[in-house]
């Protein structure tokens, strides 16, 4: 009797100890993590893991600014928003000692321009914006080019643009020989004028979110669409005739993990970041949704088909043509006004 009681007490105590660990709440894009991860994370670290999702980075930003910084521990979002989040004090420096797996990060994604020395962030996954197209309906033997959309003489019938200001204006800027992050009103205006002409073509089906455009190509309604490479990978698996390219140059993005300034569970947050940077875990996450992993140590565990897939991992020559979108601080207005012009004429 006594022994049983003692055993029960021990069992109860250990149960309490397990429940003692406050959960880690991660705020990220929807369908962006293998659903098996929460259970495995809890097993490995003892912290229960809660995943909360958002659809657009702007929604996340608005929510955090409205005071939700104390509701989430980790935020996963795109590089272009990091500067703003640091300046608005929505995130706090990481506890580097708790993230030994930081050594696993691929050097080309470590120490990024928006967060020197990875003071606030470590990368989660990365990808590109590009063109998905139907290989049977484009001019044979021609390398994929933005001219299929942007040049009146070579335009495909029909195509879809992406309903995102920065990547679309960025491609326009790149075609004009400028940087995607140009702050020169003349260059930005030229890119906007180019987009107005493209949009005005009867061959243009308009703007759509990346997924919507991809679906129109999949359904045969359009020949080409601007979309994210992650969506393209899945579309190409569904329909063999489709292909994806970043053409003459495009936007590369990296989604990063940050700890909110008032995280209720900072230790858990750092533990989560460390966990994701583990070689096996990073590979598991990337094998699930076919986005590229920035964790070099994870490469041996990436599915063979994905590792050799140029849609996911572009070759070195292509990488040189890709450009990150930077925070434009006071010139954000310049690009916003240019986009308004594109959408009003």
């Amino acid at each position: 009797m006594f022994r049983r009681l003692a055993l029960l007490t021990v069992a109860f105590a250990s149960l309490c100890a397990a429940a003692d660990k406050t959960p880690v709440t991660v705020y990220m894009y929807s369908e962006y993590i293998d659903p098996a991860i929460p259970a495995e994370f809890e097993k490995a670290t003892g912290y229960p893991l809660r995943i909360e999702v958002y659809e657009a980075a702007e929604d996340m930003l608005a929510k955090l600014r409205a005071g939700a910084v104390n509701q989430y521990d980790v935020v996963v979002t795109t590089d272009a928003y990091v500067t703003q989040m640091i300046k608005l004090k929505l995130v706090k420096p990481l506890d580097q000692a708790k993230i030994p797996n930081r050594k696993n990060v691929d050097p080309q994604f470590a120490n990024p321009s928006f967060d020197r020395d990875n003071k606030f962030s470590y990368p989660y996954q990365w990808g590109t914006v590009g063109l998905i197209y139907d290989t049977t309906k484009v001019p044979a033997g021609m390398a994929p080019t933005w001219k299929w959309l942007f040049d009146a003489k070579s335009q495909l019938n029909q195509f879809v643009l992406m309903d995102e200001a920065r990547p679309m204006l960025g491609i326009g800027l790149k075609l004009g020989g400028a940087s995607m992050n140009s702050r020169d009103p003349k260059q930005v205006k030229a890119a906007a004028d180019l987009l107005i002409a493209v949009k005005g073509s009867p061959k243009c089906l308009g703007f759509d979110g990346g997924v919507g455009g991809k679906n129109k190509v999949l359904a045969g309604q359009a020949i080409a669409a601007v979309c994210y490479n992650g969506d393209a990978v899945r579309a190409v698996l569904e329909k063999k005739e489709l292909a994806y390219s970043t053409c003459e140059g495009s936007n590369i993005w990296v989604d990063v993990m940050l700890v909110t300034s008032q995280a209720p569970n900072s230790d858990g947050a750092n533990a989560f970041i460390n966990y994701v940077l583990d070689a096996q875990v990073a590979a598991k996450i990337s094998n699930f949704n076919h986005y590229a992993t920035p964790v070099a140590a994870a490469m041996p565990f990436i599915a063979a088909d994905d590792k050799t897939n140029r849609v996911i991992y572009p070759d070195a020559a292509t990488m040189k043509t890709l450009e990150y979108l930077e925070d434009l601080d006071k010139d954000t207005r310049l690009h916003a006004e240019a986009w308004t012009a594109v959408k009003s004429h």
Partner: peptide
């Protein structure tokens, strides 16, 4: 946006752009 191809902004889009992408 969904049925017109989002080629043209309406006031609603313009306001949403300020609270969203433009952060203004």
């Amino acid at each position: 946006d969904l049925l017109g191809g989002a080629k043209y902004m309406l006031v609603g889009n313009l306001i949403q752009q300020q609270f969203g992408a433009a952060a203004d």
